[in-house]
Amino acid sequence: MDNTMTLTKKVALIHSFEPEPDAAVNILLTLQQATKDAYVDEASARLVADYVGLTLANIYELVSYYPALNEQPQARYVLTFCHSAPCAVSDNGFIEKTLHQILGIDEGQVTDDGLLAYQGVACVGACEQAPFIKIKDHIFPNLTTDKIQQLVADLKAGHFDDIL
């Protein structure tokens, strides 16, 4: 996990939740969002498991089952787009094709600088803003090819460093 997050900080974050199994997903999501690499590594998973009284295997099952939890380090910016049917009607693979063109990588791959990746996900409830790209909490709505190019340039230039 992000090496800027010290063990003490991690433990403090975990201990801000109740030590019950039902807090596991809450903790894992919070922990993941608090770190730059945005994934749950084994050491952190073990801390969570011991704290909430689940086993490491239980935690692994959660992390590997849910799309919102990651087993592997993520790119700095993961550009998510919707591949569900309602958006497909509106954009018909437009975002995916455009990102493939601009970034030169396939879905799920990471650019060489570790900065960018794109990933199709199921509905995020922003259907009325399609075609859109979602990065963490932020939605970039009603995109065109130019707007996507601008967005990628902005991300590379670090313009969104503070909000994302």
Binding site: E20, P21, D22, A23, A24, V25, N26, L28, L29, V52, L54, N58, L62, Y65, Y66, P67, A68, L69, A122
Partner: peptide
């Protein structure tokens, strides 16, 4: 209770499992 994304959790049996950890 935070969800990490599973459509099947609309099914109460899955929802309760998910919520309990």
């Amino acid at each position: 209770s935070e969800s990490a994304g599973a459509y099947v959790c609309q099914e109460p049996a899955a929802l309760f499992n998910a919520m309990s950890g």
